[in-house]
Amino acid sequence: MKQYTAKEVEHLLNEGKTLNIIDVREVAEVKAGKIPGVIHIPLGLLEFRMHELNKSQEYLLVCHSGGRSGRAYQFLESHGFNVINMTGGMLAWEGKLE
């Protein structure tokens, strides 16, 4: 499983790198704060919304602690997507929120 830490993701964003981040948390969790610019697709809807994603792009998956994003990683990878899991999830995130 390809992984980045929250610090690595924060560093990449601060450098101006464009990342396609998918937050797989539930609506109430995202309302409490999310990484600026993320795509919100709750894990339970990922199967039904994966047609919105482009297999030629890389996606970084985020959840609360890393478990759900790990499951999303396995699911999307099995369907031919290039994905990365953010270890520690939003619990480890110290960067900006919106």
Score class of each variant (00 low, 15 high):
Tyr4Leu: 15
Lys7Met: 14
Lys7Thr: 13
Val9Ile: 14
Glu10Ile: 07
Glu10Thr: 07
His11Glu: 10
Leu13Val: 08
Asn14Ile: 03
Lys17Pro: 00
Leu19Asn: 10
Ile21His: 06
Ile21Asp: 04
Ile22Val: 09
Glu26Ala: 02
Glu26Phe: 09
Ala28Met: 11
Ala32Gln: 12
Gly33Arg: 07
Lys34Gln: 13
Lys34Ala: 13
Pro36Cys: 04
Val38Asp: 01
Val38Gln: 04
His40Trp: 10
Glu47Asp: 11
Phe48His: 14
Arg49Ile: 07
Met50Gln: 10
Met50Val: 09
Met50Ala: 05
Glu52Ser: 12
Glu52Gly: 06
Leu53Asn: 07
Asn54Trp: 02
Tyr59Thr: 01
Tyr59Ser: 04
Tyr59Arg: 00
Leu60Gln: 06
Val62Ala: 10
His64Lys: 15
Ser65Gly: 06
Ser69Asn: 03
Arg71Thr: 08
Tyr73Ala: 11
Tyr73Thr: 00
Gln74Gly: 13
Glu77His: 13
Glu77Val: 06
Ser78Phe: 04
Ser78Cys: 04
Gly80His: 03
Phe81Leu: 01
Asn82Glu: 13
Val83Trp: 03
Ile84Tyr: 00
Ile84Leu: 13
Asn85Lys: 06
Asn85Met: 03
Met86Pro: 02
Met86Ile: 14
Met86His: 11
Thr87Gln: 13
Gly88Lys: 11
Met90Thr: 06
Trp93Pro: 01
Glu94His: 11
Gly95Gln: 05
Glu98Met: 07
